[in-house]
């Protein structure tokens, strides 16, 4: 059977339980290309961004999560979790790339590029 396009493009890697991330909090996933920040909002949605603020590279995973945004711990830029873009006065000044993420049975699955499938 042909796999749908998105599962050819990504492998989904299980990076842990949703419950491992505090509500209104974040955790990071380490990769060879740098850290990825995984956020869990107050209304139970999960987002993933490259863990670098577009301003001065601050680790967004260490910021305060509020609404659908995170405040960077270095200089308080507010980054929209869905787009990775700064909001308010800093809108339009770059972005933290988003990573596809989904939840299945309480687990966080992160899109993971492998180039070609090994199965």
């Amino acid at each position: 059977m042909n796999a749908p396009i998105h599962s050819i493009a990504h492998d989904w890697r299980d990076v842990g339980a949703v419950a491992d991330i505090p509500l209104r909090g974040a955790r990071r996933v380490q990769t060879a290309q740098g850290d990825i920040a995984i956020f869990r909002t107050g209304d139970e949605r999960v987002f993933a961004l490259i863990d670098r603020c577009p301003h001065k590279g601050g680790p967004l995973s260490q910021g305060i999560v509020h609404g659908q945004a995170v405040a960077c711990p270095l200089h308080n830029w507010t980054i929209d979790l869905a787009t990775g873009e700064p909001t308010g006065a800093d809108a339009g000044k770059g972005c933290a790339p988003t990573i596809p993420v989904r939840i299945e049975a309480g687990r966080v699955l992160l899109a993971h590029w492998t180039g070609d499938r090994d199965d």
């Binding site: 990504h10 842990g16 380490q30 990769t31 988003t98 596809p100 992160l110 899109a111």
Partner: peptide
């Protein structure tokens, strides 16, 4: 101490795809 409070919650080998 909860295991991922300070350490990453996971370590991935190969690259990740940004949207």
């Amino acid at each position: 101490l909860r295991p991922n409070d300070f350490a990453p919650m996971a370590v991935l080998g190969a690259g990740v795809s940004a949207e």
